[in-house]
Nucleic acid binder design. Structure first.
Lengths: 255, 255
DNA sequence: TGGACTAGCCTGTATATACAACTTGGCAGG
DNA sequence: CCTGCCAAGTTGTATATACAGGCTAGTCCA
């Protein structure tokens, strides 16, 4: 029983995806043109066109008529990975982002962290603890573990300038994410860092992110319930952009 | 300054989408085959193929080689609309769903409700208040308003058997959704209905849903923080399915 | 020197054609 | 009556070809 042969355009897509996720082709790099693929891969231009067009739809590449095809900057890939960076999020709504780095240390993974990151007990990971502020008000505690051999320079980064999320994205495209959202009372340490009133709840996002087929980082993000919300808009592909004014109106609906 | 002519395949897509969202073509209905489109729309088969293939990718239709093309059952459209139905969600994890209908009344929209639903003050809406339980434990308070002329039979429905979400989906495909998630302390009424301890936070989902181009329903969903989470998995199109066992492991990560 | 033009590459679309694989229904033979 | 087979319709893929339109670099001319 031999495996069924994949169609030619799919082989082409796989080939290019492999070159991207291996790091051989990096964001903004030029991808072979349709005619180059015709020559090098022995396909017709329509087949090359289909492969590249579908990669565009899936967010891997961007195409500019007259110039060529280029690997996407993955920051704008998915709805979620897009909102992954709190600094961008704050800036987008006109606030000023600042952050305090409480901890940036190298540790040995234990227990749940090792399991979440699919590494053995004792493997080295970085442990980051940051407090992000919008206009000086604390808005997120980021408690993150990063597999050390994925980001060996992590300990030397200045996370005031570039958030961990932006840094990790720059190393290699983050391709898959899994998250859990819950409402929870914070422990005393988190409450103090977020300057929260007693009994005020936290919105907690627990997120694990994959790159090149393995989990590379695991983050627990605490936000004060009184001043943070997750928003989302879901429309079929091809729908005109949403009306931001309307969204704001909805957000102000308090009881 | 004339508007730029849309490409032929896009006109074809628009034509079919119009027939679907107008209700002329309903879920499971057969869509004209490629050859029929060639004849009726004067395009080549490759162009018809591209239109139908993209509609497949976008979730509007499903295609079966040898049989034909059929309008999708929209329940499985988007990541979010899929999880829209709490009864399915409970059933999927092996629980038993039950629910208490606290209120199902016809009202006149006022203030924020009218604005959220894009209707004038005084227009008739249904107001639903339900408590959903998993294995007898209250897990969600659903406080929903529905535009009356979208679902005129709403008042006669038995929402023990079919949740509002399933009912509304059956009337017409829900095509767009907008939601806000926050952590909040419940008021006394909600806390009592969910049998929550004092100071226990709620995970609140506020969701507005569109059909045929206008908002038709607006819901406030309160969940007890101690026993409810939103989960999500985000992967590029074409990635093999996630590993559920792993997700469970992550969810159990408590502190 | 500077500006206009053009050749050459690129993507985007459209068509005609071909073959493969799948599904269904009907028909012929047992 | 049942079984097996085949024909017709459908989707899925692949190719060759054509033309339109965007972009760039280099050339030519004033």
């Amino acid at each position: 029983m031999t495996a069924k042969q994949k169609p030619r355009y799919q082989q082409l897509k796989d080939h290019i995806i492999t070159r991207i996720s291996s790091g051989e082709l990096r964001p903004t790099d030029r991808v072979p043109s349709e005619n180059e693929l015709v020559a090098s891969m022995s396909v017709s231009r329509m087949t090359a066109n289909r492969a590249l067009r579908e990669l565009t739809d899936e967010g891997y590449v961007e195409r500019i008529a007259g110039r060529g095809t280029f690997v996407s900057d993955f920051r704008s890939r998915s709805h979620v990975l897009e909102v992954h960076n709190i600094a961008d999020e704050i800036e987008r709504r006109g606030g000023v982002h600042s952050c305090e780095v409480v901890r940036n240390s190298r540790q040995h993974a234990r227990g749940e962290i090792a399991r979440a990151l699919h590494v053995d007990q004792g493997v080295e990971v970085f442990h980051l603890l940051l407090v992000h502020c919008e206009d000086g008000t604390p808005i997120q505690v980021e408690d993150r573990h990063v597999v050390a051999d994925f980001a060996p320079e992590c300990g030397d980064q200045d996370f005031h300038a570039v958030t961990p999320s932006a840094y990790l994205t720059a190393i290699s495209p983050l391709q898959e994410a899994e998250q859990v959202v819950r409402a929870q009372q914070p422990n005393a340490a988190v409450r103090a860092r977020l300057q929260m009133a007693e009994h005020e709840p936290c919105l907690v996002v627990i997120r694990r992110t994959w790159s090149r087929g393995r989990p590379v980082t695991f983050a627990r993000l605490h936000h004060p319930g009184s001043c943070y919300e997750l928003t989302g808009h879901y429309a079929p592909p091809g729908t005109p952009k949403s009306t931001p004014a309307d969204v704001v109106q909805l957000e102000n609906l308090q009881r």
